[in-house]
Each structure stands twice: as structure tokens, then as C-alpha cells.
Design a protein around this nucleic acid. Structure first.
Lengths: 246, 246
DNA sequence: GAGTGGTCTAGACCACTGA
DNA sequence: CAGTGGTCTAGACCACTCT
């Protein structure tokens, strides 16, 4: 009945997707702003909430909008550039891009290393590790959830310090240890209940997981981090120099 | 009515998700095998197709299963390890992991470079580029769609050659050119219609996009690739050596 | 041609957010 | 406490795959 603009074989979902995208690109919907409610949008596009949500989910997948649990849909801010070569100074990285960084400590503890961590960090079985969980915000938006696992032999008493600043800086200033080599494993996954909760995401939302092992300048393994990034918040950049070859 | 096993506050979606995951982990559903039809599963779990599909989508997001358009849901094979340091020899990389690699040329052409490519490749405006589109299979499953953009001044007549083998090898053997440095940009996105079609994915499926710029040993820019990886098919690994610092 | 996935409708109730 | 998102029901029709 309604004179929808759909051309042949463009699904409703795609039509809605394109209409919303045009609004965002044109700037009518500005970065960070909230979209109208799902019910409002579904009546605007003369469809059901289910169909409308499919279009919204597609936009979220592509990264144009994101959802805050029970609060609604928002236009995504620009991605952060994460250069793996610059050593993990989160605040510095964020601020050099004109954004505001905040780090919040979620929990600290000392526990037995899991088998996987023993392998990754080449530890003896039944070794203990300090575990530090932190949440990092960019411009007020929860962006990365990080689980650090530190060797307590190298970093005794670190849990008593102020852990809201860069661990790399603490290593330098308190322990005189420089980070050298680092290895990364990067892959897309989905948020489990815990991570979803901290990042204010729906369970099952796409994430970029980065597992990082840091070495000091003598090749000793210092720590292993698991970083869970919102998939729409980051662009990783790496330079691989020719000296690494042959 | 039915004696569902849901405990307090576990949603149906999560219950189904966990039940299916258990089947996969236990090996009852083997790698590559097809799941029962959606209708069958939804009656098995005593729910609607919509709810069931939500659970399937969550599993797909996390990477345990994937869907082939209009064919059904399948158990995902193990991820490929993509080490950015080893120079882009796809077949070698795949085969060293005990898998089978096939490359198919989709199209070739010579076109004006887009503004974005001009910037990335530091070209003069209105430069031309060879464009090669290829689809790569791992164990018979379409896994990466790649769009290569080569400088035709450096690689004349390359479009006439056999492009199913590694371009890096062609550079060496036919032009005597070695790849040196490379830069990468990595970020999660969603499949547009074209990429989705080639990878046999639903439009809007999550992807890992890798933009790669290759240099020769004199620092000259050779080409720029855009690789679209199935998000569940790859794990990227990078070593950042200490010599890159300070 | 039977069955499957792809898309869509038209509702419902609950838990939580925010005024 | 009104309104929102989160979850779910019970169907429908079409286009495609596979046999």
C-alpha cells in the first residue's frame, strides 16, 4: 500500500539499512546521538520491530551504530587507531588522537595459572599469577576490557599500587623493567556474559580479542594480557619491516 | 508446560546455545557436519524458529558454526593461523597447517585508482591500477575474498599471466622484485552484497578486513590488497621485535 | 516437487531505565 | 510509573536447493 522506495528485490531490511546509513553519513544523525526508539522507527518504516531490529543489527555489525543495554541505539564514534608497534601506552595512544581515556580497575587477585596461561607464558605447572581486570573508556564509552596476568615473581606487591595508570609505566618506574618484544594473537569472537556486562553489550556481540605476551629486553616473559575490544571501536595497524625477513 | 531445563534467568537462547555447544565440543557434531534443519531444531528445543535462529546466530558470531546461504548450518573447521611476518604466501601458509588451498581468479581489469587508493599508494591523481579479484578456498570452503591493486608501471602485462599462484612469487620470478616492508590495517566490518555473495555469506555477516600495502626492498610501493576474511576462519599472529623500539 | 532457509507479520509479557 | 528494550509466540509466503 505505502509507496515504499524499494526497487526490485531489495529487501526491507536493506532499504531501512540504507536509509539510516544515509542519515548518519549526511550528519543528520550525529556521532554519539541516540536513535529514536525501536517502536518509533518501526512505525516510521512501516514494519515490525523484528524486521527493524534486523536492520539495526546489520548496521551495528558494520559498525555505524551500537546499542547500550536497555538504553537504545547510538551512532558510533570514530575508531581508535591501535598501532601494535607503539608499546601499549593506552592513555597516550588515546590522547594523541584527541580523545579522552579513563581506566578503571575492576578487580585484582592472585590465582593459579590456567593450563593455557602456563603454556603461553612458559610457566611451571601450578604457578601463581597476579590477575588484574581493568575496563578502559574512550570519551566515556566502555571500549576495552582487559585481563592482565603478571608473573608475581617479577612484580611482587604490584597489586598494592595505583593500577589505573599504564602497567608498562609501572614496570619502568617501580621495577626498572623495560618491555621489549611482544607477540599478539588477534581474532574475532563474541562476548560472553561477563565481558558483555562490563562493556555494556548484549551477550553474543562481536568482539575483537587480542592476546598479548610481553617480554623484557632479556627475553623474559613478563605478562600476558587478554584484551576484549568492542569490534567497532578499533582499527589495528601494523608495520612489518623488511629486517624481519630472511 | 514442557519440562525445560532452564534455571532461573537463563534465557532460552542461552540454553539452546549451550546445548548445541556441548554437542560440538563433545564431538557429537563433527567439524564440517551439517546441523539438522531449523524447523527440526526449533521443535527439538520446543521454541520458534526466530528464537532458535537467535541462538544459531550467536554461535555463528562466536565462530562455532557458520551458515551457507540457503543450505543450512555447519560446524566450523579450525581457524587458520595467519602470521603477518611470513610474506603472504597463501598456499604455503595453508599447506603448512595441513590444509588444502585453492585460488580462483574472479576478475581482472585496469581502472582509475580511487581517491582512497591514491592516498594509500601515494599515486598521482588519475593514475591507473590493475585490479585483480580472487577468491581463496581452504579445504573447499570459500575463506578469503581479495582485491589486489597493482601499479601497472611496475607490473606491465601481469594480467596475462597465470594469476592462480602467489602474486609474491610472480613478482620474484617474472619481474625480479622482492617484497620488503608491508603495512597492515585490520578491522572488523560486515559483508556487503558483493563480498557476501562470493564468500557465500549472508549480507551483513561479520568479516575481518585486512588492508595491506606491500613495498619492495627499495621502499617503492608495489601494490595494495584488501582482504576480506570470514571472521571465523582466521587467527592473526604478529611478533613485534624489540628492534622496532626506541 | 518436497523441504529448506530467507523474510516478514502482528501481536505478547517482562525487566529495566529514566523522568 | 510510563516507556523502552529484551525476549518470545505462532504463524505466513517466497525463492531456492536438492533429489
Amino acid at each position: 500500500m505505502t509507496h515504499t522506495v524499494t526497487k526490485k528485490s531489495a529487501t526491507q531490511v536493506v532499504t531501512i539499512y540504507q536509509a539510516l546509513l544515509a542519515q548518519i553519513i549526511s550528519g543528520t544523525l550525529a556521532t554519539g546521538s541516540k536513535l529514536p526508539s525501536e517502536r518509533e522507527l518501526s512505525s516510521l518504516f512501516a514494519t515490525t520491530r523484528i524486521t527493524l531490529r534486523e536492520a539495526l543489527q546489520r548496521m551495528a555489525m558494520e559498525g555505524s551504530i551500537y546499542r547500550e543495554s536497555r538504553r537504545g541505539w547510538f551512532v558510533t564514534p570514530p575508531r581508535l587507531e591501535y598501532n601494535l608497534i607503539t608499546k601499549s601506552l593506552f592513555h597516550q595512544m588515546v590522547e594523541s588522537q584527541g580523545r579522552k581515556a579513563v581506566t578503571q580497575v575492576i578487580s585484582t587477585s592472585t590465582e593459579l595459572a590456567s593450563p593455557e596461561l602456563c603454556r603461553k607464558m612458559k610457566l611451571l605447572p601450578l604457578s601463581k599469577l597476579h590477575r588484574i581486570r581493568r575496563l578502559r573508556y574512550v570519551d566515556g564509552r566502555a571500549t576495552v576490557f582487559v585481563e592482565h596476568h603478571l608473573n608475581p615473581v617479577i612484580f611482587p606487591d604490584i597489586l598494592k599500587m595505583d593500577l589505573t595508570e599504564s602497567l608498562t609505566l609501572i614496570y619502568q618506574k617501580q621495577y626498572g623493567i623495560q618491555c621489549g618484544r611482544a607477540t599478539f594473537d588477534i581474532y574475532p569472537t563474541a562476548a560472553d556474559a561477563s565481558v558483555a556486562h562490563h562493556l555494556n553489550l548484549a551477550e553474543g556481540s562481536p568482539l575483537l580479542m587480542i592476546i598479548r605476551v610481553n617480554y623484557d629486553q632479556n627475553g623474559r616473559i613478563l605478562d600476558c594480557d587478554r584484551e576484549f575490544w568492542r569490534h567497532d571501536a578499533v582499527r589495528i595497524s601494523v608495520d612489518v619491516g623488511s629486517e624481519a625477513f630472511n
